[in-house]
Amino acid sequence: MATKAVCVLKGDGPVQGIINFEQKESNGPVKVWGSIKGLTEGLHGFHVHEFGDNTAGCTSAGPHFNPLSRKHGGPKDEERHVGDLGNVTADKDGVADVSIEDSVISLSGDHCIIGRTLVVHEKADDLGKGGNEESTKTGNAGSRLACGVIGIAQ
């Protein structure tokens, strides 16, 4: 089992970053940390998408990683996509320092995120509470600013 993974985020604009993942036990939580720069100040949706395909930019990554066919939600919700990591918060300089621990994603097994795409979005994720159909699919997080395929790390 891989215990570490990394993702280099890039987009068409100024947004870029490096996100690290570490899972010490196969059924334990995954620590997610790193930094994203070039964002507007505020909240930005942060999700693992189904495919590791960036051939047409971030759009070819498909929908959120959702092997259990659930509705979109927040990272602490029972009803959520596996890939729903909530929001990252950018400061006035456009930098989001990421520090998350998640017990639904994994670096092995059915919820493995390796080979899938991590995406940072234009807007805040409403965590499935926006009151419309799009909220239950995407959290109304808007366009995909930057993305990268999650790969095994040393």
Rank of each mutant, 00 (worst) to 15 (best):
G109D: 06
P67K: 13
C147Q: 15
G151F: 15
C147R: 04
L145Q: 12
V120K: 00
T59H: 10
A61G: 10
C7F: 11
C58V: 14
A5D: 08
D126A: 06
R70G: 15
T3W: 05
K76D: 13
V30W: 01
T89D: 05
I150R: 01
G28H: 15
P67G: 08
H49L: 10
I150C: 01
S60F: 07
V15W: 03
K4W: 14
S108R: 12
A2P: 15
H111M: 15
V119A: 12
N132A: 13
Q16A: 11
R144K: 13
H81V: 00
G17H: 01
G28Q: 13
V88A: 06
R70P: 04
S106N: 06
G109N: 01
D97S: 15
Q16F: 15
G151I: 03
K37N: 11
S69Y: 07
A153K: 06
V6L: 14
L43Y: 15
L118Y: 01
D125Q: 07
E133C: 08
S60E: 06
L39S: 00
G57W: 09
T59G: 05
K31W: 13
E25V: 05
T89H: 14
N132H: 10
G142F: 04
G131I: 14
V149H: 04
V82M: 08
K10C: 10
V98L: 08
P29L: 05
P75W: 14
N66G: 09
W33P: 05
F21Q: 00
K31M: 03
V88S: 01
V104S: 12
N54W: 10
A141H: 08
I100D: 04
L85P: 01
V8S: 13
D91M: 10
T59A: 15
Q23Y: 03
I114G: 00
A90M: 02
H49Q: 10
E79G: 09
K129T: 13
A90P: 04
T117Y: 15
D93F: 13
G17E: 03
T40P: 11
E79I: 13
H49G: 05
S143V: 12
G94C: 06
L68G: 09
E134C: 14
V120Y: 01
I19Y: 03
G83E: 07
K71Q: 08
G42A: 01
G151Q: 14
G34R: 03
G94E: 05
P75N: 06
H44A: 02
A153V: 10
H49A: 15
T40F: 05
A146W: 00
T59P: 14
V119P: 02
V98G: 00
E25Y: 06
C112Y: 02
F46N: 00
V119R: 02
G83V: 13
T138V: 09
D53L: 05
L39D: 04
S103F: 09
G148N: 02
R144N: 15
C7N: 02
F51C: 14
V48Y: 02
D84H: 06
G11D: 07
A153H: 14
H44Q: 04
E22C: 07
R80A: 03
G57V: 10
I100G: 06
G13I: 03
G73D: 08
A61E: 12
Q16H: 13
V48H: 02
S99A: 11
G52H: 03
A96E: 03
V82L: 13
N140E: 05
G142A: 12
V6H: 10
N20P: 02
S99N: 14
S143L: 15
T59C: 11
G115A: 02
L68S: 01
E22P: 01
L85V: 00
G11L: 02
G86M: 04
T89N: 15
C58A: 11
I114A: 02
L68T: 10
G17Q: 02
E134V: 06
P63T: 12
T89Y: 15
A146H: 01
P63D: 09
G13T: 15
P67H: 07
D91E: 14
S26P: 02
F65H: 06
G115E: 00
E41M: 15
G57H: 11
T59I: 08
A90H: 01
G151W: 10
G94Q: 04
A5N: 03
N54M: 14
I113L: 05
G38Y: 01
N20V: 05
C58M: 07
K129Y: 07
L43H: 07
G42Q: 01
P67L: 00
I114D: 00
I36L: 10
H81E: 05
G148K: 00
D110W: 08
D12F: 11
L9G: 03
E50W: 15
V6A: 11
E101T: 04
F46G: 03
K24F: 02
A146V: 07
K37L: 08
N140C: 13
D125Y: 09
N54H: 10
G74N: 14
V15P: 05
I150V: 10
K71V: 06
E79P: 14
K137P: 12
G128C: 15
S99C: 11
D97C: 15
V32I: 15
P75G: 07
V149Q: 06
